[in-house]
Design a binder for these strands. Structure first.
Lengths: 233, 233
DNA sequence: AGTTTTTGTGACAATTTTATTACACGCTTA
DNA sequence: TAAGCGTGTAATAAAATTGTCACAAAAACT
C-alpha cells in the first residue's frame, strides 16, 4: 500500500530534499520540474497525491492546481501546496481552487509528513470505481459483489453501501449521524439506532472468518472499520 | 499540538494578564518585553504564533513584524497584532506588512482566544486531525486510538478525553476544576474528587510500561501530565 | 508522635450506551 | 394476491461507563 507522490518543484535541490524525506518515510516519489512535465506525469503514473510548488516557471502552480481540480479525471487527487509566502491572499486563492492543504516553507520534514498523512486520511483512501481489497475482503462496486477469501457474500443494498463506505473509509471513527449522511444520504429521516441494526446485520454477514470484528464499536463515538484488531497506531 | 505562543508586550500587567488567559485556555506561553528580547525568543523556542503589541519601546512592533515577515525562516509564523487604536490606517499598514490578524484593545479573553484559534485553523487546516505523540505514547483523534509503544490501550470515553486533554496540555498543572471544565465541559455539576477517580483509572490503563507516573500529582494544586519524571520545582 | 489535610483505591448502584430480537410495513415478483 | 425480501423501529437484554462514597494511605503540619 505504498503511496505515490508527485513532487512538482523547479528548484532541484529543494525537490531532491523533499523526495529524500518522502522516500525515507515509505512513499514512492515521482518528480516534475515544470508545468508541462507535471501535467504529463499526473496522467501517466497517476499519483496518489501531489506536492505542488506555488511558483513554477512555465506557468504558476496555482494554474496547474486549478486545471487539475477542474478536470474530472484528476480532481480527486489531493494537492498540497508548497508556498514560501505566508501571504493570506495567496492561501485564500489556493483554497478557492480546491487545494487540500498548505505547507509553508520553510517546513520541517516531520511537519510535511504529518500533513501528507492527514490529507491522505481525510480524503478517501481508495479510488471510487475500482474494486477494493482489504485483508482478504473484496468488494467490486461495479459488479456489486463482495467476497471474503473468495467466498461470496450475500448482502442487501444498504448493507452493501455500508460496507462499501467502510472499505473506502477505514481507520476512522464515524458517528451514527455521519454514517447516515454518507450511506443513507443527507436529509433522510432515519433513527440513529437504525445504524446499529445494520451494523449488526453486516457483522453477521461477514462473520465466520474472523472478520466480524473488523467493524469495531467505539463507545460514545460510533463505529470504526479497521484491520488492526488489537494493535497500536 | 501543544501550541506555544510568544507574547510581546512591554507593559508587564497586561502581558501577565494575557499569558494568564492563554494558559487558562491550554496554550503554552513565552514572554518578551522588548524588540531584542522578542527577536531572540522567536529564534529559540520558535513559537507557533506571536501576539505582538503595536507599540514597543526599543522599536515599534510593526518594525518587528516587518522584520519577521521578511525573514525566510520566520515568515511562516502567524502574527496577531495587539493595538490600542482602532485606527484603520494602522491596520492597513499592518496587513501590508503581512500580519495575519488584529485584536484591538481592550479585548475580551474570549475574543482573543477566538482570534488565535481562527488564525491557527487558517494557517494549518489539518492541525486538529493530526495524531499526537508524546514520549512513545500516541493518540489519534480521528481513528480514536491510543497506543503506548505500539501497544493499544483500551479507554472509556471520559478517559480518552482526559488523556487527549493531557496530551495537548503537557507540562502544566491543572486544578480539578480546570480539568472538569475542559474535559467534562463547563456548567456540569460533578464532584471535584471524581477527577481523582478518573485519574486513577487512566493511570491504571497506561501503567505497565513505566509510563504510569506521566500523570503527576501536585499536592494542593491538581495534576500535571509530564515527560519529566522527577524534577525539581 | 499525634492530628489534620489531601490523595489513592476499591466497591457499588445508577445511568448510559450498545447488542439483539421481534415485528410490521412496503415493495417486488411469481 | 401470496410469498419473499429488505428495511426501519420499538422493545428488551446485555454490557460498559460513570459518579459517589467509605475507607486506606500518604503527606503536611503542630
Amino acid at each position: 500500500m505504498n503511496r505515490q507522490i508527485l513532487v512538482v518543484e523547479d528548484e532541484t535541490p529543494i525537490r531532491e530534499m523533499i523526495t529524500f524525506v518522502l522516500e525515507q518515510n515509505g512513499f514512492n516519489t515521482i518528480e516534475a520540474e515544470d508545468y508541462e512535465d507535471a501535467k504529463a506525469k499526473v496522467v501517466e503514473p497517476y499519483p496518489d497525491l501531489i506536492l505542488l510548488d506555488w511558483m513554477l516557471p512555465g506557468g504558476t502552480g496555482v494554474k496547474l492546481a486549478k486545471t487539475l481540480k477542474q478536470n474530472e479525471y484528476t480532481r480527486s487527487i489531493p494537492i498540497i501546496m508548497l508556498t514560501a509566502r505566508a501571504d493570506e491572499d495567496d492561501k485564500v486563492k489556493g483554497f478557492d481552487v480546491g487545494v487540500d492543504d498548505y505547507v509553508t516553507k520553510p517546513f520541517s520534514p516531520k511537519e510535511l509528513i504529518a500533513r501528507i498523512k492527514a490529507v491522505i486520511r481525510r480524503v478517501s483512501p481508495t479510488a471510487l470505481e475500482e474494486a477494493i481489497e482489504f485483508h482478504g475482503m473484496k468488494l467490486d462496486p461495479v459488479a456489486h459483489r463482495v467476497s471474503i477469501n473468495d467466498r461470496a457474500l450475500d448482502l442487501g443494498p444498504t448493507e452493501f453501501r455500508l460496507l462499501h463506505f467502510f472499505m473506502t473509509h477505514t481507520e476512522r471513527v464515524y458517528s451514527r449521524e455521519q454514517l447516515l449522511d454518507n450511506v443513507w444520504g443527507t436529509n433522510v429521516y432515519v433513527e440513529d439506532r437504525t445504524v446499529d441494526v445494520h451494523i449488526r446485520r453486516l457483522r453477521k454477514a461477514i462473520a465466520g472468518e474472523g472478520h466480524e470484528d473488523f467493524i469495531q464499536t467505539v463507545r460514545g463515538s460510533g463505529y470504526r472499520f479497521s484491520g488492526k484488531i488489537k494493535m497500536g497506531i
